[in-house]
């Protein structure tokens, strides 16, 4: 019996592509956010609101991942998205860097402030795949359990932002706002929180302000 040492990451091909994507975006100072959540937390709703409010001030491209249908992409175009690219995975439970790098040549990177990737609704599988983003933005809604960060530590540990959505429904379920934050801090003490309602618009202004600041910081850094 002979042992051959390999010591190679299983996803080294994905990580190599992700590094190439990151380099392309960094060299142009484009901020890239990867949105993750369970199905139905409100990723598309938050992005609709973001496009309709910020679309005039910022140049935004959006890759809308979905297992099936282009419904999300169509909603985002209806919300004013000018550069919306549907990515139907046809069954795959996550996006990978290859899918992103296939779409990237279609996007005019020389005239862009922000690239948003809307991942497939799933808090497990997308955690393993680096897409070349600056940060992951994780959404949780008040119709879910406040123990969600504890149930999916891998995703919340890898995320930088946590948006707590549907706060207009607070009080109608047993969801505890303080508790969800405590649970999230146990997994990741550096998470930045936003509390939003895409229905009433509550809390969206601070999300927009943060976005503007981050885009500015990214441009200055590159």
């Amino acid at each position: 019996m002979k042992k051959v040492i390999i010591e190679k990451k299983v996803l080294s091909e994905n990580d190599k592509l992700a590094a190439e994507i990151r380099e392309q975006l960094d060299s142009r100072g484009i901020l890239c956010l990867n949105f993750v959540s369970s199905p139905g937390s409100g990723k598309t709703s938050l992005l609709e609101r973001t496009l309709s409010s910020m679309g005039d001030r910022l140049k935004i491209a959006l890759i809308a991942g979905d297992v099936q249908t282009e419904n999300d992409a169509n909603r985002l175009i209806a919300a004013g998205g000018k550069n919306v690219f549907p990515l139907v995975t046809g069954g795959s439970c996550h996006l990978d860097a290859k899918m992103i790098s296939n779409i990237l040549p279609k996007i005019n990177l020389d005239d862009l402030d922000l690239l948003i990737i809307e991942n497939v609704g799933n808090l497990v599988c997308p955690a393993s795949y680096d897409l070349g983003e600056d940060m992951k933005v994780a959404l949780v809604s008040t119709t879910e359990g406040h123990d969600k960060p504890l149930k999916y530590p891998g995703m919340f540990r890898r995320s930088s932002i946590m948006v707590i959505n549907k706060i207009d429904l607070l009080g109608t379920s047993d969801f505890d706002l303080a508790e969800v934050k405590n649970n999230a801090r146990q997994i990741n003490a550096n998470l930045i929180f936003f509390e939003t309602s895409c229905r009433t618009g509550e809390g969206l202004e601070s999300w927009f302000q943060w976005l503007l600041e981050e885009i500015k910081t990214k441009k200055e850094r590159c």
């Binding site: 042992k3 390999i6 010591e7 190679k8």
Partner: peptide, 9 residues
């Protein structure tokens, strides 16, 4: 998540 080694017969 890595491939550490291969064992050859």
């Amino acid at each position: 998540m890595e491939i550490a080694f291969l064992e050859i017969k």
